[in-house]
């Protein structure tokens, strides 16, 4: 009796390929998971050592305003208050997003709605270039252009929070713009047509229909921009002045969590309390970036619920 064509044939070879493909993709996933787990484990263990091994008080760490790691014990030190850096990080993140948000969304509207043909053709490569520029170039440009400009026109040294904010604003602009463009492009054309057919002008359609429909996307865009600003070290470090005190104005030199880590990492010995404190800062960054990711997911889910 002949074997049925559905049962005979290259079953085993296909089956082998199937399993091979499965194994290969599974391996890729495993590598990623292991890497993420390793980072979390490592940062957590080192970061928490500050408090459990070196017995630095968590509250003194988080809310202390004095950063004097080299102060001897007889002088009452060392002091590891990182509040000024936390504040610095939040200030540069918030204000750079405040600047880049509206500009990025405005540019996105221009590219998708006002001049979709040439606007997009011109802006798409510009944005891709902006994304691709290494952060050291942003920092260097800021150092050469923004810092002297601020020194002349705003007073002070020029180095400070404001310089950091401006550099970061330019840096996160392409992120905000491109995600906003995606959000606007995702609005179904028939919704736009519905608005035009009711006699709405282009601006009325943009303001009352598109902006609203894209709002969750805009929020996501700004959060991604903030995540990038919060985590950026090099460019900020070059222009922020790296002051250790609690900032009292935007023109004063200050530091952020990331700049403190990069500035001090090379000068400490692994395992020492000075080194562990930097890991604690890294832990803070990790937690914050986790918060950003969850915020994005939450907004995404809310957005989907709203538009169902």
């Amino acid at each position: 009796m002949e074997a049925h064509p559905l049962i005979a044939g290259r079953r085993t070879r296909e089956g082998f390929r199937d399993r091979l493909g499965y194994a290969a993709t599974l391996l890729s996933v495993a590598v990623i998971l292991v890497a993420v787990a390793a980072i979390y484990l490592f940062v957590f263990s080192r970061g928490l050592a500050t408090f459990f091994v070196n017995h630095v008080n968590v509250l003194d760490f988080l809310f202390g305003t004095e950063w004097r790691p080299t102060l001897t014990e007889s002088e009452g030190g060392p002091k590891f208050g990182v509040l000024p850096f936390i504040v610095g990080s939040f200030i540069v993140t918030f204000f750079s997003a405040l600047i880049a948000g509206p500009i990025g969304i405005g540019a996105a509207i221009f590219m998708t709605e006002i001049a979709p043909s040439w606007g997009r053709k011109l802006m798409q490569p510009v944005i891709e270039i902006l994304v691709g520029i290494p952060s050291v170039v942003y920092g260097f440009t800021g150092l050469t252009l923004i810092v002297p400009f601020l020194r002349e026109h705003a007073g002070g040294l020029g180095f400070g929070l404001l310089a950091g904010i401006l550099v970061l604003a330019v840096m996160i602009l392409p992120t905000v713009t491109s995600i906003s463009v995606d959000a606007l492009s995702a609005v179904p054309p028939e919704i736009k047509a519905g608005s035009y057919a009711l006699g709405a002008t282009r601006w009325q359609t943009i303001w009352r229909i598109l902006m609203r429909a894209s709002a969750p996307g805009f929020v996501t865009a700004v959060i991604f921009g903030m995540a990038r600003a919060f985590g950026e070290a090099l460019a900020v470090q070059m222009v922020i002045g790296n002051g250790k005190n609690m900032p009292t104005s935007l023109l004063e030199p200050a530091s952020t969590i990331t700049t403190v880590i990069t500035m001090n990492m090379g000068n400490t010995v692994a395992g020492s309390v000075e080194n562990n404190v930097l890991w604690s800062l890294a832990l803070l960054l990790l937690l914050m970036s986790t918060v950003f990711i969850f915020a994005v997911r939450w907004v995404g889910r809310r957005g989907r619920l709203m538009s169902r």
């Binding site: 919704i191 047509a193 057919a197 009711l198 006699g199 609203r212 709203m306």
Partner: peptide, 27 residues
């Protein structure tokens, strides 16, 4: 715009706005 106010249009696939029922009509 004045023309479209006088000549309304409805498509094959319903395309309500992502708003409340009230706001769709009041739009």
């Amino acid at each position: 715009w004045a023309l479209r106010k006088r000549v309304g249009m409805v498509w094959q696939r319903p395309n309500p706005f992502n708003k409340s029922i009230y706001e769709n009509v009041a739009f």
